[in-house]
Design a protein around this nucleic acid. Sequence first.
DNA 1: ACCTGAACACCGTTCAAGT
DNA 2: ACCTGAACACCGTTCAAGT
Lengths: 185, 185
Amino acid sequence: MGRPARIDRDAVLGAALAIADAEGLDAVTMGAVAERLEVTPMALYRHVASKADLLDGLVERLLTELQVQPQRADAGWSEHLAAAARATRVSARRHPAVFPLLLQRPATTVSARRVRDAIEGALREAGVASDLVSQTERLVSTAILGFAVSEVAGRFARHSRRQLDADFERLLEWLGQLIESQTLH
Amino acid sequence: MGRPARIDRDAVLGAALAIADAEGLDAVTMGAVAERLEVTPMALYRHVASKADLLDGLVERLLTELQVQPQRADAGWSEHLAAAARATRVSARRHPAVFPLLLQRPATTVSARRVRDAIEGALREAGVASDLVSQTERLVSTAILGFAVSEVAGRFARHSRRQLDADFERLLEWLGQLIESQTLH
DNA sequence: ACCTGAACACCGTTCAAGT
DNA sequence: ACCTGAACACCGTTCAAGT
């Protein structure tokens, strides 16, 4: 006993994410992850309960990596919102295979809450009434996630990058407009 | 030769969809589909090129089943849009396992075009300028699909049906508002 | 405490053979 | 023309055994 650990949960998730990014979700098998770590597949089960647990871990890692800037005081709510939305899209493009899984789990983890708080903060800053903040956050996040997932999952495969950039900017304008219409002036 | 066919592609897709609806996507194996048709798994390959092709077929079937009402003359564009959106949500709830796959493929098939045409028709009817119609359709559809997928895939699992109904109605109001703001008054 | 070898039930897919 | 039997490479997962 006291045998030095050669891998840990973080290493497992890191290897799995690298495979997912490079070869897609189907390539993420216990065997492939193990091989990358120079270990047998069975060794993974000490650090991950199951393959489903491994995928949950990947989703959590995406959320953790998602850079939501600490609110800069010199920028307004609409810049804060746009920054969070753009960071979300960047994360989607960096991890196209894993990102769509975000639609499958309620945002209950610590890092998910961080992202939500950032958006809710922007909404309050904009002047959205307290009792409308959480519904508004859900719908705003849904639109942003829906776009980002569509883009990386393939629904927009026929559209150019330039077109998608323009679509996304228009989406941000719309969201800003809607939020303003929601405030007392 | 001339042996009577016991199954056809439609039967394969029907069996697969029934399994997906009842037990989820993971339960859709070639073996399970074959068993339901009282046939061996190998028999499916005459009617379906691969499992990926089978899943593509399921997505296409969802689109076909999606009831987009023929535009009723006595209703306005906003009712037409709302009707298409509600039909989309109903389809999602009926086929929660398969519906999320819609985000993975460009809407290039005949039945996908039917749905898109219905929405673009509503937009034109509303008075959206021609050169904005297709971008507006993409963003409106993205919001509706994003919501419906979130709901059936589990992202809103913590929210009550009543809350989700209210969220969806608010989303429809928003979309109507945005479209109006897009017209020449 | 951590990793492995052997084993199990299952998966998608092929190909030649049967009717 | 349509379905099957046999076979292949692979999959996730378990459990007892090794260090």
